[in-house]
Write a protein that binds this DNA or RNA. Structure first.
Length: 201
DNA sequence: GAGTAGATCCTCT
DNA sequence: GAGGATCTACTCA
């Protein structure tokens, strides 16, 4: 059990990093409550050449500035006015790669996750989907720019390795506006794991 | 079980 | 002033 080093995030191949994130553990300690879960589903956003990315074409605004930070930084933003989506920034400074964490399997602090999600019953919707898992772990937009080497949000390697044959590759979700880039196979999830948001159309 | 509308607000044009 | 890397509840069958 150890935090992923900066050398994990600073690599250039965002697809490779995405695959390796499956089976890792996302941990947060927010408001004094520790919660964690195993990552089961991710999507890669390949920066300036990816029309689905906020940083497409080198677009740079107050919001996307975080994506240009060095690997190992949290990029959180608000979607549809309601949902906080959590991304991991990868690659070197000035290269705006990011990986969206879409789903995870809850491990620690499940009762607190249920409180945050206002759920009385434990079911698969607890951390299935990017907006849901952020709410469960207490991640909000004010955490954007946080370092993943600090003591608020981080990712641990607990010795679990997902074999390639257990991985499924597919199109990303909800990016129809990205034109031909919507067809890119940039989504990865663990085969037969119930904690996966949904199947692509 | 499948399909759809509403919530809700920050960011960029 | 429009729209989005979503989720849930509600309708209809």
């Amino acid at each position: 059990m150890q935090k992923l080093p900066s050398s994990f995030y600073n690599r250039e191949n965002v697809l490779q990093i995405s695959k390796e994130l499956l089976g890792k553990f996302l941990v947060t300690k927010i408001d004094g409550i520790k919660t964690s879960g195993m990552i089961t589903e991710v999507e890669a956003y390949a920066g300036v050449i990816d029309r689905a990315s906020h940083a497409y074409g080198g677009r740079r605004t107050d919001r996307t500035e975080i994506m240009y930070a060095k690997g190992g930084t949290a990029y959180v933003y608000l979607c549809y006015g309601i949902h906080h989506l959590f991304n991991v920034v990868t690659n070197k400074k000035e290269i705006p790669h990011a990986i969206l964490i879409r789903a995870l399997e809850p491990v620690e602090g499940i009762s607190d996750m249920m409180l945050r999600r206002k759920k009385s019953k434990f079911d698969y919707t607890l951390t299935k989907g990017p907006g849901a898992l952020s709410a469960a772990l207490g991640i909000q937009v004010n955490k954007t720019g946080s370092s993943l080497h600090g003591n608020t949000i981080w990712i641990e390697d607990r010795g679990i390795k997902i074999p390639t044959k257990k991985m499924v590759v597919s199109k990303r979700i909800g990016v129809e506006y990205a034109g031909s880039d919507a067809a890119l196979l940039y989504r990865f999830y663990i085969r037969d794991n119930p904690w996966v948001s949904r199947h692509p159309k």
